[in-house]
Amino acid sequence: MNWDALATYGPRMLQGLVVTLQLVVISITLGALLSIPVALARMSRSRILRAVSFGYMYFFRGTPLLAQVFLVYYGAGQFRTQLEAIGLWWLFRDAFFCCVLTFTLNTGAYQAEILRGAIRAVPAGQREAAMSLGLRPRQIFRKIVMPQAILIALRPLGNEVILMVKGSSVAAIVTVFDLMGVTRLAYSRTFDFQVYLWAAVLYLVVVEIIRRVWDKLEHRLTRHMRSA
């Protein structure tokens, strides 16, 4: 163990970890909010809505996250005057914001796809039964379809959270000092390969915790579906 490096960069790496978690929590939450209208648009009767949501989802699921981050971060830099004119430059000036925006759009597309699959997986009989009970379409969606769809979506959503933890490391390339960013800095100063291994351990611990917590959550939310 390189204790000197650990004393100098250990605390900073933990700070970096906090930044990583902030990136993930904000993006996943905003992405979840975004995914509901997108998934609905994708299944809507309007051709335009379907086409727009399809285009959005196809683009963000078909291109690398790193390329998307570059597009937003350096692309926004090019449109500074326009962004200033509409009063949004102060947001795009910040690398952290640019990453949150890109990650939200990215995970929103993936979560919409997960949600769409889950909604379609809810048996048609559920809807029919609700209709014959005289429930209105809105009620059917909110009280019958969505709760079941979310249960079906739980597992893939958990994977999506883990993918976001890992994917968020690309923020380091555009100056954000997340865990990866601090690790790169520590390596460039100490030239000690150990720092990458410490980062690896931290990432693994976070992923493992998320997995366990998610399993618990799933276990609890599906308890009514298990036979005694």
Partner: peptide
């Protein structure tokens, strides 16, 4: 390990 680590790392 390799599903838990960021690909970049």
């Amino acid at each position: 390990v390799f599903r838990g680590l960021p690909e970049l790392l």
